[in-house]
Design a protein around this nucleic acid. Structure first.
Lengths: 123, 123, 123, 123
DNA sequence: GTGGTCTAGACCACG
DNA sequence: GTGGTCTAGACCACC
């Protein structure tokens, strides 16, 4: 479990944690049943408040990524890989359209974009 | 000047306006010298607060996209869009990481993701 | 918007708020577009902490009941009445089985249970 | 003595044990004098912590369901189950309110809900 | 004015 | 030990 906080990142701290856990799950670095560090442990390691970590775990629970039960450590949930409904899939598609538009406006060439994508698709 | 507000879009209203103006400038739909609607006019048309439009215009002025002079209508400035700084490019990269993560968790295969990307790169 | 806190109720304060809003939505006392009191306003009225109300609003947002956007008041979302997948519907069914079992063990007669149900089905 | 733990059940482990014993007593599957497995034995079988089973037994003793004497095996006590106090009955009522709310939000019609109830009242 | 994030500390409940 | 709830107050961002 490697999680880090990037102070320069404008996203909220809890969001950074959520994203990193989700990424590791999607890359199979974390698999169902794996334990997450306790809220207190992780907050100590990252030097942030307990409640901020807890907020991240709550989000992950609500998104079905982890199981949270009183008195037990948080664990990666049994993820259903094809659960997304048509709405969710369509939403992902439109986010791609938007992102690619933004990337091109920011000066990325199609080939640069392809390279970025491939990097993210590996492992 | 076609500007619209998308309620489903999670970005702040003023951001949506800024982005749409910048996009039209980069597409040459708006060229230097073109007039923008007045703050009052645009806020009425969009049904949003005047302060919100004003804030968008201030942001555009700060980015050198438009000229704002007291008592005159806002006009597109004669300066080119910068090809986006390193921060902006890094931001785009992390949005790709996040989107690809979400897509994989939603059940998209790498090949499906590649297809979606190519479709968006075409036009 | 009538929301109240029952100190004798063992459920968490935020959960009581969530349940009451959901109930009013299901009874059409609250319809899409209706404004909710602001976090500070409701917490003052109920005599509880701002963050506790906020927690309730967050839950409601995650369940798709309300829209929460920075700087705007919370509003009842456009609820899709038949969105629940088969899993969700099956889950509801098993909760009925469990509740009816508990009710009979607690000494409720079938007729008493029917009366309770009808009370909850009205308006 | 068949007791099982349901990981999907949101209730605490000790509660699940307590409820199952009480249910078996009320169904006469367990009658006064029947032995319960030792704390050690049951915790091993269920793969849970000894403290958790111990807590369940203490709860059952406090409710007058079993006799616990140092050095002897736990046995079902000779006292009848109370038909549940007002608090318990009120609790059941509010669970109905909540369940019906969830069912309506999930798209169940009143008639569908009535049918589900009748099915559960039959056997 | 509104909601959003973060910190801090207390206390409770489960295992 | 673990997670869960509540309070309190600061500060930020959007409208």
């Amino acid at each position: 479990m490697f999680i880090s906080i990037d102070e320069r990142d404008s996203r909220p701290l809890y969001q950074q944690i959520v994203n990193q856990v989700k990424e590791q799950v999607s890359r199979k670095t974390l698999v169902p049943g794996d334990e997450l560090p306790s809220v207190r442990e992780l907050s100590d390691n990252l030097g942030i408040n307990m409640h901020t970590v807890r907020r991240a775990y709550l989000e992950l629970r609500d998104q079905g990524i982890i199981n949270l039960r009183l008195g037990r450590k948080a664990r990666i949930a049994g993820i259903k890989l094809q659960p997304a409904g048509d709405d969710a899939r369509e939403h992902i598609r439109s986010r791609f359209t938007e992102l690619v538009t933004d990337a091109r406006l920011a000066g990325f060439t199609p080939d640069e974009i392809r390279v970025i994508l491939e990097k993210n698709l590996r492992p």
